[in-house]
């Protein structure tokens, strides 16, 4: 008795051909188009000037010395440590020795910063414009259609997600409206793009947002290189040296069982 009445809606099969398929195909095509647009819009990575390069690699060398100190003999390590620490503290490797100790200028005035932001703007615009257009297009042509029924039951919370644009309270959640189908494809097409364009594509919005996440990207505050060098010098000062060659002959003999 308590069996709920199974809702049946007789849909015109043409709905499938004229709404479901077009939306899906359009979404896939825009993704592909966006991928190629992003490739066209990408500016090649800017070359670093020589002093900057020197600065970064000198720091890397210091880090290498700290991490791999075990390959050096104690006397050799001591000599290197002394030289490196002194050079780091004096700022011998700084790209801009005059700027030492001065506060960093406003990032907005830095042309390099502006370039990075331009790149991000381009990406966002390439994302937003087609999104708005397609959304408008779907709303104008296909709003208010119930186009398919999911083959599994769902809780009522999904109602707002699956039936946007269809204002009926009593409709079973399993019915999906055309606008909702648009949203589903918008977020769910990543595997399809991976299949078509290869895994390193920039077709989907989600992957774009993900890529901007780590380290706040180019917008993040750039650290003062002088501070980095000083910190590295301090790290080097406290490092405990162990020579990997110490007792190597005994280790070898033990391995051979002699």
């Amino acid at each position: 008795m308590a069996q709920p009445v199974v809702q049946t809606i007789h849909r015109d099969p043409a709905l499938f051909y004229w709404i479901l398929l077009p939306i899906t195909i359009v979404m896939i095509l825009t993704g592909i188009l966006r991928h190629y647009a992003m490739i066209l819009l990408q500016s090649p990575p800017k070359k670093q000037p020589l002093p900057k390069l020197r600065e970064a690699r000198a720091l890397m060398r210091g880090i290498n010395l700290r991490n791999n100190n075990a390959v050096l003999s104690p006397s050799s390590f001591r000599a290197r440590k002394a030289v490196t620490i002194q050079a780091f503290k004096e700022g011998a490797f700084l790209a801009d020795p005059d700027a030492k100790g001065k506060p960093k200028g406003n990032p907005m005035t830095d042309p390099a910063m502006m370039e990075g932001m331009m790149g991000m703007m381009k990406g966002n615009v390439a994302m937003m414009v087609p999104q708005t257009l397609i959304m408008g297009w779907i709303n104008a042509f296909f709003s208010g259609f119930v186009i398919m029924k999911l083959p599994f039951p769902l809780t009522p919370q999904f109602k707002s997600m699956l039936q946007s644009g269809v204002g009926t309270r009593d409709l079973d959640v399993r019915w999906v409206s055309s606008l909702s189908w648009y949203f589903l494809t918008l977020f769910g097409l990543q595997p399809v793009y991976n299949f078509i364009l290869g895994s390193n594509n920039s077709a989907s919005q989600m992957s774009q947002q993900m890529a901007q996440m780590p380290g706040a990207g180019p917008m993040g505050p750039e650290q003062d290189p002088d501070k980095l060098f000083n910190a590295e010098a301090e790290n080097l000062e406290v490092v405990e040296h162990h020579w990997v060659l110490e007792g190597v002959e005994d280790r070898l003999l033990a391995r051979w069982g002699m």
Binding site: R61, N64, L65, N68, N69, A70, V71, L72, S76, V244
Partner: peptide, 9 residues
Amino acid sequence: LEEVLLITP
């Protein structure tokens, strides 16, 4: 060569 080893220990 020691520098080389510092990079590829």
